[in-house]
Design a protein around this nucleic acid. Sequence first.
DNA 1: CAGTGAGCGAGCTTCCGCTTGACTT
Length: 793
Amino acid sequence: MHSISKRSEDIMQKNLVIVESPAKAKTIEKFLGKDYKVMSSYGHIRDLKTKEFSIDIEHNYTPQYVIPADKKKLVAELKTEAKSASQVWLASDEDREGEAISWHLYEVLGLKPQNTKRIVFHEITKNAILHAIETPRDINIDLVNAQQARRVLDRIVGFELSPILWRKVKPALSAGRVQSVAVRLIVEREREINDFVSEAAFRVIANFILPDGTTILKAELNKRLKDREEVKAFLESCKSTSFSIDDITTKPVKKSPAPPFTTSTLQQEAARKLGYSVSQTMMIAQRLYESGLITYMRTDSVNLSDLALGTTKEAIFDTYGEKYYKFRQYHTKSKGAQEAHEAIRPTYISNEDISGTAQEKKLYELIRKRTIACQMADAELERTTISIGIGDKKEKFVAVGEVIAFDGFLQVYRESSDDEGEKEQENGLLPPVSLHESLVLKDMVATERFTQRPPRYTEASLVRRLEELGIGRPSTYAPTIQTILNREYVVKGDKEGTQRSYCVISLFDNKIKEVDKVETVGADRNKLMPTDIGTVVNDFLMEYFPSVLDYNFTASVEKEFDAVADGELDWTKAIDKFYKMFHPIVESTSAVRTEHKVGERELGIDPKSGKPVFVKIGRYGPVVQIGQARTDDKDAPKPQFATLMKGQSIETITLEEALKLFDLPRKIGEYEGAEVVAAVGRFGPFIRFKGKFVSIPKNLNPLTITMDESIELIEAKRSKDEQRFMKKFDEEPDLEILNGRYGPYIAYKGSNYRIPKSVEHPEELTLEECQKIIAEAADKPATTKRRTAKKKS
DNA sequence: CAGTGAGCGAGCTTCCGCTTGACTT
């Protein structure tokens, strides 16, 4: 009996379904039952070679596809399963990438038209999948070709531009349709900030006493005053004038909830509300997805499935009542109709609490609240504006108050905004007043305020901008940021503010007082700022390849690809048109023999040697150079170099600052009979003493550090090093127990071994116990050695 | 890991979008 059912299973299992993601495969397999085996392709299974151009320009841009090494095993497995299946269902996503994945599978697995079907579904429910199986179609080669065009164009741009940068700027740099625009945004924003001139004006706020003698009404003048004279004249005139309520208006205001999350809005809100980086958010979301708690996290769709709409409605009815519910359908704005997925939402909205890390819980809660709120009623507010007349002057004081009449979705979720700086005034409830009532002035304060410079980008606000421009995809936002950071085009960091004085003029007790105060402005935390390399590369690309750096470049090639996808245009023709424009510029740019390097700037003449001083991007970053290298005189001395320090820029450094750098390495003095020298190296400023290196912290400068400060650093490093050694064995000098960044470990012959958590007192381990740990670790592949070796190569 | 760098030389670096591991000195 058992063997019969087993055999019937083998025979019945004749359907192979291939999807993109393994988590999806698991879910679908449950719906389809035993007749279907569901496997995952893990994204693309074939691509252009990674190290070669792989496009045959001469033969109509034929791409040369290969199966990457890490996909060989998977492809072999898929092939075996496909062979034994009588029907193969290609169920990758319904967008161009998904269609291309199906096509590659078809080609690579050697599938036959008669037993291959292409299906798509928009939500992972049993009904949707069964419906998909009933309505299969063929692979849409037009969509595939649109993807190939996109792939080939990106390869051409990336692999033709990058080598130019290696020659003209610095090795191992890169350029591309997406990353280069991301850098451009950041470089241009920094220039706007540098060029920004703030304008000052006085904001006047008054406190009035109502006729009851106690209640205070705070109001702001409806106009800003331009200078001290005007303020003083105004305050003076207020000494002997009357104030009365001129007008009271109340009007209803409605607020609507934000649409459900897409990748980019989730990244923005998680950054604002939870402080997560873009990649952190994606990693946490990935875990939630794999645990079956949320829908797919890489999406640009705001669509919700009928099932989700229904269960969300139920949840709102149950928890908040019917009047808090409002049916809303959101539509994805971006054309391209690549709605392969849903918005990001909980798989089961009734699931309020989840198990997981604190981070996972917080992100889940955020997603759940946003999903619920998006199906809730508008909030209804009442905005009251009280206008206060000043004698017979034209100006008025205005007080604005807001009262929530019905909270609606606000009960659950309120979207944050990026606006920093002056906090939005909390418009609370205003005291009751009546028209024409006269008021007594308590005090009046005019504060000098300045217009704000544009804000630097955060990771999340950069993603938002890229999405607005239609550049990049949900799956690439986080990696793109990583790339421009890795290339050192931009850094994520803090900027100290500058001190600015401002003036406060007040009227109190019929006396006018003027006070000057100081505030810190322009300080920034965790913002994206361009480096010299980023700026130089951007300026170079903007000069020679403005079309590729154009904010509309992606949008305009995307239009061509749309025509390909609609079957109206041959994809190779679209590429040919681009290539014939682009490649000649590549050729001519490569041929240009620039006398000096890109971005080089002459600062002046070195008074000591009489030689010219330059700043430029060297092989390892920004440097100052004294003297020309290329001279006819073979015996001429070589130029001298010095690395720029952190915070210095080749755009702004002065001749004096540049020459100062040649004071390094600098002998500070002697300590314990040995020289103490300060210098700057690959890893920043350091002190050298007795052959050892001690890093100089940020608050000190190698040019100015004193002997006392140096000794302090040396001693601090000494005691830290001593703590590092926990135990040594006389009989085995190669073996040491050390205390490292990640806790205690055993160092033995160049390799490190983790001490099991079960060991409570590592310093009490015996030599035998240590050797046992090493022997056990040796059974597993030695990771440490391999890692360091890899890094070096 | 640490004062690199103007050039005979060998070979390397690089794109964007799909998707998860296997790493955790």
